[in-house]
């Protein structure tokens, strides 16, 4: 408690400044004496008072939680205090600080002889090095290694040399398709003109190869040779767009096919559009390759199962994406 009192007294003394500073001995002025400007000073004091008031208002509005239009009042108080502060700086700079304009010519170009001299000094200062080239090499090696160290974290963006892991998916022949709640898909319950999201039963759902988009089309609309992949016209594709890896969340499905655009799976990020009836080929948009399709089969219980792995690597494209095939 006594310590607090000491601090308070010390603070008070500092603030008020009881002891007048000793006057400095008179020296020759550098800056010419300006005329006092009491009016500008008064304006400045008023502005500072305004800043204090606006800042206090911000605190008050912040504390009053249930105020209507609180966001606007907060902005007004804080913005107002900044504006007043800017005005105060303006008054100080324009009316209170003594100012003068000085013209100073650019310096003449130094004599070339002096420059040559500097070069000579630099060259001769290196006389203690006996193996200059080795030292230069070691120095560049050190700096180069440091630069490389700064670049290395970029390796976390994805595998660079061994891209094998990008081809593996949790799907293999016989794996059941389940919905978000883990319920298996019964082929008879899958309707046309709507879309479903499916996951591998017992597999890691976080893997990029896990989620599927499942739709049903009239069997005769599905092009050969993929018709055998689509029991009852039910097709499954990777839900991850081959362009930038967004989830394919749109299914364009016409109510009256003759006058409306074809059914299509669309990615909401950049509108890559894939044809579910024709092997997931790109109809429109920036995607560079077809959506990987998962062949399906219907088991004895009428439930949907994978009949193999995807037709191609899943996920966004990278260099060499076309060189391998999806693996389990």
């Amino acid at each position: 408690m006594t310590k607090l009192k000491d601090w308070l007294v010390a603070g008070g003394v500092l603030l008020v400044g009881r002891r007048r500073r000793e006057r400095r001995p008179e020296r020759q002025r550098i800056v010419a004496a300006g005329a006092p400007n009491r009016r500008a000073e008064n304006v400045l004091l008023l502005l500072f008072f305004g800043v204090t008031l606006a800042a206090a208002a911000f605190i008050a509005v912040y504390a009053l939680d249930r105020l209507s239009n609180q966001t606007q009042w907060l902005g007004l108080a804080l913005g107002g205090s900044f504006c007043l502060l800017a005005a105060a700086c303006f008054v100080i700079a324009k009316h209170l600080v003594v100012s003068e304009e000085l013209a100073e010519p650019y310096p003449e170009r130094e004599s070339p002889a002096a420059q040559g001299e500097v070069e000579q000094i630099v060259h001769e200062s290196g006389s203690r090095f006996t193996r200059k080239r080795l030292v230069t090499l070691a120095g560049s090696g050190a700096l180069g290694a440091l630069g490389l160290a700064a670049l290395v974290p970029a390796a976390s963006l994805g595998p660079v040399l061994d891209t094998d892991s990008l081809y593996t998916t949790p799907w293999r022949k016989g794996r059941r398709l389940v919905d978000e709640a883990g319920k298996p898909f019964v082929a008879g319950d899958v309707r046309e003109q709507t879309f479903y999201t499916a996951y591998p039963e017992g597999g890691d759902r976080e893997l990029i190869g896990a989620p599927l988009v499942v739709v049903r089309l009239p069997l005769e609309e599905i092009t050969e040779p993929r018709r055998s992949w689509a029991p009852h016209g039910i097709v499954a594709y990777s839900k991850i767009c081959t362009h930038a890896g967004c989830a394919i969340a749109l299914y364009r499905t016409p109510t009256f096919a003759p006058t409306q655009p074809r059914p299509a799976l669309v990615c909401p990020c950049h509108y890559s559009t894939f044809d579910p009836a024709d092997a997931g080929k790109v109809i429109f948009g920036p995607a560079g390759r077809a959506l990987p399709q998962l062949p399906l089969l219907v088991d004895r219980e009428g439930e949907l199962r994978a009949a193999g792995n995807f037709s191609g690597p899943v996920g966004p494209s990278w260099w060499g994406v076309r060189m391998g095939k999806a693996r389990s």
């Binding site: 319950d189 309707r191 709507t194 299914y251 364009r252 499905t253 016409p254 109510t255 409306q260």
Partner: peptide, 14 residues
């Protein structure tokens, strides 16, 4: 329930 034009429709199970 209808899915007008190119909108998908959602059944009561969905």
């Amino acid at each position: 329930r209808i899915g007008p034009y190119v909108m998908p429709k959602f059944s009561s199970t969905q």
